[in-house]
Design a protein around this nucleic acid. Structure first.
Length: 570
RNA sequence: GACCUCGUAGCUCAGCUGGUAGAGCAUCUGACUUUUAAUCAGGGGGUCGCGGGUUCAAAUCCCGCCGAGGUCACCA
């Protein structure tokens, strides 16, 4: 998998003769490394290999930092969440190996507001160029635009029980924490320019009209937010070699000198900001989307800057592909587009552990689809099968690991199948107690917790995204269908009415009677089956206008008896 | 222009450093005195995108091509 990753120089650090020492050291601490290694190989999970790599690049750290970060420029969508999920898996793996690991999450909210997303008042265009934390909340409630979108994700993260250590970049920058690093970058601005030039193509330079000499002379590796306009539309005029610089605000044409140690309106651009923070936070692992990981992209540039300027090895990277979505019309993935699907939206349909499981079970290099259509049945079913195997102690090591990373615990019992939650939820008016009673009556074994958890998700799934799947009792007798029925079949319906008018003691008893109605001594087994099938089809058509439906005994037992009897009056 | 991922059963995908093609769902058959959006057992189904190469041996490694999706070369 880590095929053609650029490892220029990196390999040299991890000299082979060190390996035995490495092993010895660990076994001294009571970690049977060699055995554990074999174990990892057998479970074959991507996360084990990544952790191997992290431990190889950064052996013997007190604390391992797995990072993730998102710029709150709009709704944080389900694609962004892969950043967190991937880092989470690696942190968990490191912990499983007895290491201390933290999951650091940076809100890049000191980034500039770049464009107004669909769904936000177009007049917000006047804030373009300002830091996201200085743009007001479109809904006028929260302190800032950034906060609006941070809150949504943070709530979902909490719901999923993920323990993140948050960093808010505006706060960090304003605290002056980075002032020295900014000065350092400015002092080495030619070097920063050179490194970036290495990654630019001649053709690109020609097209953009970049002259390397000119670029090197005028490049300042900073963004300044003008104190006059609040935006980054600024030209840096001079730098004193310390912490003072002079800039011209291009909006107001005013010029001033500031000491950015006292007036923190200066930010490093992404390709310096990123490696600077790797050092500041001692990051050992950070995944990123392919936009960063493409050769010559920001990871390459940032790595070079990290090594050559800041003198630190870059963290182990892991590229991930984007997540797809199906079953929802006009799919809009990008956070800067309207109608973006956030983890919060997903959590209305997926339970937290299932969602985490979907993100972590496959290698990040593989794209997968989230679904709002009947595909979720399959996902829930597959998940449940593994959970059941896990509860029984029969899950494979790989399955077990991912389930545990996802937060599944032993002794939670068998979950209610999502399909059943949808079917039975409808006939119990989505009431957990009613469903539990129904499940008990008809012999469905499932945990009470799962009923509670899944019923509301099933309801949302059905009503909001799959209304065509709704089973609704007809409001009037299906005379059209009844007209197609012969006397014998009508007779069966009449028998059913009699049955339902009497006392129904239990679902299995009702079941037996139902199968008994179409039985005829003159028919052999095969023919009986056909007759029974036909009978059920008739009942479904009369009640809900479809050829099939929920298991009939359960269905009839739960439905409003009077309404059913009316519909069967043909 | 460069690069990345993917292409294996009808569908969703496993197949890690090469050793006789796998799972789930779907389908079919059968069983439980019935199977309907709930059970169990069994069966069928693949020239592993195409063409070369390396090898005793290739889904797996190498080269080329085709197809699908995506990223960078502005900014983050």
């Amino acid at each position: 998998m880590p095929k053609s990753r650029k490892t220029s120089g990196l390999k040299k650090f991890v000299s082979r003769p060190l390996m035995p020492v490495f092993y010895f050291h660990f076994s001294n601490q009571g970690f049977p490394v060699s055995q554990e290694k074999e174990g990892q190989a057998s479970d074959g999970l991507w996360v084990g290999k990544v952790a191997d790599k992290v431990l190889e690049e950064f052996p013997n750290q007190e604390l391992y930092t797995c990072a993730a970060g998102i710029s709150p420029s709009g709704v944080v969508h389900f694609g962004n969440f892969r950043d967190i999920a991937t880092s989470l898996a690696v942190a968990q793996e490191l912990r499983a190996r007895g290491k201390k690991a933290r999951l650091l999450f940076s809100w890049d909210n000191y980034d500039r507001f770049r464009k107004v997303p669909v769904g936000v008042d177009p007049s917000f265009a006047r804030y373009i160029g300002m830091p996201l934390t200085d743009v007001p909340d479109p809904e006028g409630e929260l302190p800032s635009y950034a906060r609006r979108f941070e809150v949504g994700l943070e709530k979902s993260i909490e719901e999923m029980g993920i323990d993140l250590e948050y960093r808010y970049q505006t706060q960090e920058y304003k605290s002056g924490r980075y002032a020295e690093k900014i000065a350092f970058a400015l002092q080495h601005r030619e070097q920063a320019a050179d490194i970036q030039l290495q990654f630019k193509t001649d053709k690109g330079n020609q097209e953009k009209g970049i002259d390397p000499e000119e670029y090197r002379r005028t490049y300042f590796p900073i963004t300044v937010y003008s104190r006059f306009s609040g935006t980054d539309k600024v030209q840096v005029l001079s730098y004193d070699g310390g912490t003072k610089l002079t800039y011209r605000c291009l909006v107001t044409d005013k010029v001033e000198q500031i000491d950015f140690k006292e007036t923190p309106v200066v930010k490093l651009p992404w390709k310096l900001d990123w490696p600077m923070r790797w050092g500041e936070e001692q990051v050992h692992f950070e995944p990123s989307g392919k936009d960063h990981m493409t050769p010559g992209g920001s990871y390459d540039v940032s790595s070079a800057i990290s090594r050559e300027m800041f003198g630190r090895k870059p963290p182990v990277p892991q590229m991930y592909l984007f997540v797809g979505i199906q079953g929802v019309k006009g799919d809009k993935m990008s956070g800067s587009k309207g109608g973006a699907i956030s983890p919060a939206t997903l959590l209305e349909i997926y339970e937290p552990s299932l969602l985490k499981w979907l993100y972590m079970r496959r290698t990040p290099m593989q794209s997968f689809n989230l679904a709002f259509d009947t595909e979720v049945y399959r996902q829930y079913d597959e998940f449940d099968r593994e959970v059941v195997a896990y509860q029984a102690g029969k899950a494979s090591p790989a399955q077990q690991k991912i389930l545990e990373f996802s937060g599944v615990k032993k002794g939670e019992g068998v979950p209610l199948a999502f399909k059943q939650a949808v079917a039975l939820g409808q006939i119990t008016q989505w009431q957990p107690e009613k469903l539990r009673a129904l499940a008990e009556k008809s012999g469905i074994a499932c945990s009470e917790a799962s009923i509670k958890a899944r019923l509301s998700k099933a309801q949302t799934w059905l009503n909001r995204y799959n209304p065509e799947e709704i089973i609704a009792l007809r409001t009037a007798i299906n005379t059209d269908y009844a007209a197609t029925m012969d006397g014998k079949r009508r007779d069966q319906i009449a028998k059913l009415r009699v049955l339902l008018q009497g006392e129904v003691t239990s679902i299995p008893a009702l079941d037996e009677h139902l199968y008994g109605i179409p039985k005829d001594p003159a028919l052999d087994d095969k023919a009986t089956k056909v007759a029974q099938r036909g009978f059920f089809k008739d009942v479904y058509n009369l009640l809900i206008g479809k050829d099939a439906g929920p298991r009939l005994s359960t269905f009839l037992w739960a439905l409003d008896r009077a309404a059913v009897l009316t519909l069967l009056e043909i």
